[in-house]
């Protein structure tokens, strides 16, 4: 009896050991991959500090080179999030709280399908359809609200502007923000929703009283994931944007800042020597930025969750 019990125990222990070892290795692999990427980017990026203007598309130093690219990346992402966040939260609310069940289900599938469209297709759509369609809009903006620096013009005649790129990015970030927000909204405790309704809240008031406070941290992380997608998106931006590497808040002209990811994709095939290192250095900056975004998101989520308790 005792022997069986002991062998049983040892056998179980062995399984535990294998399993915990396997999970530990899996966890370590992720850390190693991450560290490997960081080390590679740093080692290969460092020589670019010495790169001269001829390797940096005319920029004096690596900082002057990366600056406009980083600016373009952040600007395009900011536009994308400004458009995508309210839209995604609205769509998520319709799906979780407003539409009849059958409609909301098919709407949910349609949104999920958006995520499955390859980014090169979005690029084609942006370049071939959205851009030209937006040209009259840009002209109108230039004429009527041209006093705003964003719409100073001259309006691009092709529609290949940073605003177009931002809109395409917004549509690409939409599914992930919607999907996560929808899940969180649907998880709002019925008890809290009924508390609001029983006080005589209309549906919108109920959403404000019970759903949004509950979902706040979830929306933040959803937006941050969307931001991650927008920051790193390469193909669509490379295709849609006519970039000239300047720093401007003018959203509708044909002179636009480029983004880091698009710039790497466009320049890498022709880069040699220190030029490659320079591109890798921009990659390192993008890596750091996305890392920072994720950390900020976690910090915000952790703080609001603490506040909830």
């Amino acid at each position: 009896m005792t022997t069986t019990a002991t062998t049983g125990k040892t056998r179980q222990r062995k399984g535990d050991l294998i399993f915990s070892g396997a999970t530990r290795i899996a966890g370590l692999t992720i850390l190693l991959a991450l560290a490997g990427v960081a080390i590679f980017l740093t080692l290969e990026g460092l020589p670019a500090l010495e790169a001269g203007p001829e390797k940096l598309q005319g920029a004096d130093s690596i900082v002057a080179y990366i600056g406009p690219l980083l600016f373009g990346t952040l600007l395009a992402s900011a536009i994308a999030l400004l458009i995508a966040t309210p839209l995604a939260v609205g769509v998520a609310l319709v799906i979780s709280h407003y539409a009849p069940r059958r409609v909301s289900k098919s709407l949910g599938y349609a949104i999920d399908l958006l995520a499955a469209v390859p980014s090169v297709v979005y690029g084609l759509w942006g370049i071939g359809f959205l851009g030209p369609q937006l040209v009259p809009v840009y002209e109108w903006l230039e004429q009527n609200v041209g006093w705003l620096p964003f719409f100073a013009g001259p309006a691009s005649s092709t529609g290949k502007t940073i605003l177009t790129a931002g809109i395409v990015l917004a549509i690409m970030a939409l599914p992930i923000i919607t999907a996560i927000s929808r899940e969180i909204f649907a998880q709002t405790p019925t008890l809290h929703q009924e508390a609001a309704l029983a006080l005589g809240a209309t549906r919108w008031e109920m959403v404000r009283l019970a759903v949004f406070p509950y979902a706040r941290s979830g929306i933040v992380s959803a937006v941050m994931l969307g931001l991650g997608r927008a920051l790193g998106e390469t193909m669509a931006v490379a295709m849609v944007l006519s970039a000239s590497g300047i720093v401007t808040f003018n959203l509708i002209s044909s002179d636009n800042p480029s983004t880091i990811a698009a710039n790497i994709a466009l320049m890498f095939p022709e880069a040699t020597g220190l030029g490659v290192n320079a591109l890798i250095a921009t990659g390192l900056v993008l890596f750091v930025v996305t890392f920072a975004v994720n950390f900020t998101a976690r910090a915000i989520v952790a703080r609001t969750e603490k506040g909830n308790r």
């Binding site: 405790p189 008890l191 809290h192 009924e194 508390a195 609001a196 309704l197 029983a198 006080l199 005589g200 809240a201 009283l209 019970a210 406070p213 509950y214 706040r216 506040g307 909830n308």
Partner: peptide, 16 residues
């Protein structure tokens, strides 16, 4: 509902 108050089975103050 504004004129008829309700108290539920489990306490449900708004958590935030």
């Amino acid at each position: 509902r504004r004129q008829i108050g309700m108290v539920f089975q489990r306490p449900n103050p708004f958590p935030t």
